[in-house]
Amino acid sequence: MPVSMCVCRLYFSKQSEKCIRCYACRNACPLCYCEVCCVDESQPQWFGKSVALSDTQVFHLMRTYHTAGRCVDCGACVRACPMDIDLRFMNKKIDKDVRELFSYEAGMDPEAPLPLNTFKTDDEDEFIKG
C-alpha cells in the first residue's frame, strides 16, 4: 500500500472516531434529499447503528459516494457538525476525481448533465456497455 494511502486512512479513522452519529451533517446537506436515509432503514437494516468505528466509516463513505459529482463544497456539513469533523476531506478528493475524469464541476452549470447520473449507449468506454 502506498504510504499516502495509510496516512489518509489514519486521518479518516481519527476523524470518524469523533463522530457521534447525530446526522447533523446529513440533515444540513442540501443534497441529502432521501425521504428515508439508508442509515435509518430498519427493514433491512443496512448499517449498524452504534458508534462502532466500522459502521461510522461506512456511513461517511456512503454519504461521500452518494454526493459524488453533486457536492458543491458548500461546507454546510462541516459547519453543522458539533464534533469539528473534517467532512470535506473525502468530498474534495471525489470532486477532484470527477473534475479530472469528466471535466465537470458541480454547481457551475445548472444545465450540464450530472456525470454520474448520465450514460450514453454509444459511450466509448468499454465498462459502460456491460
Binding site: 457521534i20 446529513r26 440533515n27 453543522a80
Partner: peptide, 10 residues
C-alpha cells in the same frame, strides 16, 4: 430545526 440529534446527544 433540522431534526438532528446534536442537542440531545450532547
Amino acid at each position: 430545526c433540522i431534526g438532528c440529534g446534536t442537542c440531545t446527544y450532547l
